[in-house]
């Protein structure tokens, strides 16, 4: 178990270093930052000074080592566009994205499991068939179309919900302001959360359904029936628990992509999170911001993956008890 964790940690570090290398190489590919920072009129002496100050004259491996070292301490340099530390800006924006991702993840997971189980148990019911057909919409429509449709319906036509922004915010700590505590904040969250979660919802639902049908065919479910256990015990104890094992992995990965895909949803709803920040950064070729975002997303993925792997140990006794089975 411990050896396994250590091995996974080493793998994670390798992944992070690779991503760091990619984000670092962004700097090398996208022109000379000195031009952007000093403008056309600067003297070559000024350029040389700044170059020296930023360490751009050092060899590439040394620059990379410095980049990585700084990144580990959370220092991704100064944003070209805003002239503020990148990490500070990201920390300001991150709560908005995390709140959005958490709410839409929760929405996708609960509804996905409920609908998945329902459609598996009532395989031939008309409602199940309807849900399965409707879920094709979730899988096939691109996020921005769904977002725009929702805005048109609920914000423009019905005028129930706001079409952009986070609504009123409440400051909890220095850099964490939440919209969850005000009504307008919660209202603003609904549409983006649905937009972002719809794809994951249908994915989880279809996965749960397929797994559940698979599990219901197994011998241990037949044997449970033959022992006269109640329908409820068979479906929701014996079958569901086994169904959810593989769902954990997928859901974990989906949570990562919810945060990553938030870019599009945040753009459609002008949601002031890191995704929107990233899009603006691209428009202004704000390299430090872009590379920091890349590293951040990779880090989130790696952490989630690690957590999922460890979670497996907790839920699946076959992995947990590997040792005691050996003797």
């Amino acid at each position: 178990m411990l050896a396994y964790i250590i091995r996974r940690l080493i793998q994670s570090v390798a992944v992070m270093l690779t991503v760091a290398l990619i984000s670092f190489s962004l700097f090398q590919f996208v022109g000379d930052p000195i031009n952007n920072m000093l403008g056309q009129e600067a003297t070559s002496q000024d350029r040389e000074n700044l170059r020296e100050r930023l360490g751009l004259n050092d060899s590439i491996p040394i620059q990379f080592a410095r980049f990585t070292g700084n990144a580990i301490q959370g220092d991704f340099g100064i944003s070209y566009r805003m002239a503020r530390p990148v990490s500070e800006v990201i920390m300001e924006r991150l709560p908005a994205t995390l709140e959005l991702a958490a709410v839409s993840g929760l929405f996708a997971l609960t509804l996905g499991i409920v609908l998945g189980v329902y459609t598996a148990l009532r395989r031939d019911g008309w409602l199940s068939n309807f849900i399965m057909t409707a879920s094709l919409v979730g899988v096939s429509l691109p996020t921005f179309v769904i977002g725009i449709l929702l805005i048109y319906l609920f914000a423009v036509e019905l005028q129930w919900l706001p079409s952009f922004g986070r609504g009123e915010l409440v400051q909890i700590t220095d850099n964490w302001s939440t919209g969850l505590l005000t009504e307008s904040g919660r209202k603003s969250l609904i549409l983006p959360a649905i937009t972002l979660g719809l794809f994951q919802l249908t994915l989880i639902m279809r996965l749960v359904r397929a797994e559940m049908l698979e599990v219901l065919r197994t011998d241990y479910i037949k044997f449970a029936r033959a022992r006269g256990l109640s329908q409820r015990a068979i479906h929701f104890r014996h079958a569901l628990k086994n169904t959810l094992l593989p769902v954990i992995t997928i859901t974990g990965l989906q949570l990562g992509s919810i945060i990553a895909f938030a870019i599009i949803t945040e753009t459609v709803f002008q949601w002031p999170g890191v995704g929107l920040l990233f899009i603006t950064a691209i428009n202004f070729v704000d390299i430090p911001m872009m590379s920091a975002y890349l590293v951040l997303i990779a880090f989130i993925f790696v952490v989630i993956n690690l957590v999922v792997d460890l979670l497996y140990f907790v839920v699946d006794p076959r992995l947990r008890a590997e040792k005691s089975a050996a003797h």
């Binding site: 197994t218 011998d219 241990y220 037949k222 044997f223 449970a224 029936r225 033959a226 022992r227 006269g228 256990l229 109640s230 329908q231 014996h238 628990k241 086994n242 094992l245 839920v315 699946d316 006794p317 076959r318």
Partner: peptide, 25 residues
Amino acid sequence: MRKIRGRKIGMVFQDPLTSLNPIFT
């Protein structure tokens, strides 16, 4: 029929490796 199953008639299946639910003791 559920009240008969297990209570009046029990059943033993072919493959013991798959007859038991793996995640319950």
